[in-house]
Amino acid sequence: MIFSKYINLLLLLTLSLASCHRAMHPAKLAYHDYKIDAAAPRDSAMMRMLLPYRDSVDKSMNEVLGIAAATLEKKQPSGSLGNFMADAVLDMAAKQFKMPVDFAIINYGGIRSLQLAKGEVTRGKVFELMPFDNLLVLQKLSGDQVQQLFDYLAARGGWPIAGASFVIKNKQATDVLVGGKPLDKNKTYTLANSDYVANGGDDASFLKPIPQINSGYLIRDALLTYIRNLQQQGKPIAEITENRIRNAE
């Protein structure tokens, strides 16, 4: 081992003699990790440059849509933020498409905030939660396809879900319930999905051949309307901690 290193060194020396370039070599390295905290000074020229952008973003994004009763957290296999979003998508899908929808899933990686803070929920917060222009689509799945989908979710550590539940065992879905009932292999189920996942995003290529019902309705618009609806009913966004997907003991 040591011997072979010397050989390499010799080789390197020979090669370097053959070349006329006298290269420099990294000899020492120090690392500084700068945290940019709330008290850090700000560059005023940069602030001025950004001002017109900020003003118009604030104008459209500071509208308060509703109130979060507690801070919701993004978590796997289940968490309060994912539960809220999946509930919203399930509810709004049925309203938008005017048909019964059995369950909804949310792509875990597509949730772009780690938390939804307690208190006022602005339009801007919802944009940060779901910045993508992903569309809400419906797909009709056989019982076997539902099992395949849930195994896929299980292998990925659990994604937000509404209208269904299961247990992750050896990276597979067991004890599957849809609408509170065990999975029926002979039934057709309606899934509310994002077009991103339905088109095979996040390596969900098995969903790609399944036709989509699509009305060009943005998932973000579904969330915005759901929160406004709650507010009109005088309800806050509740913290639902139910473990819809859990890991086997």
């Binding site: 060194l9 390197l12 020396l13 370097s16 006298r22 290269a23 420099m24 070599h25 990294p26 000899a27 020492k28 390295l29 120090a30 690392y31 500084h32 990790d33 700068y34 945290k35 940019i36």
Partner: peptide, 14 residues
């Protein structure tokens, strides 16, 4: 965060 790596170089090889 901002990462900062300070390198010192010389002609010593290997």
């Amino acid at each position: 965060q901002l990462g900062r790596l300070d390198y010192d170089f010389n002609r010593q090889k290997g």
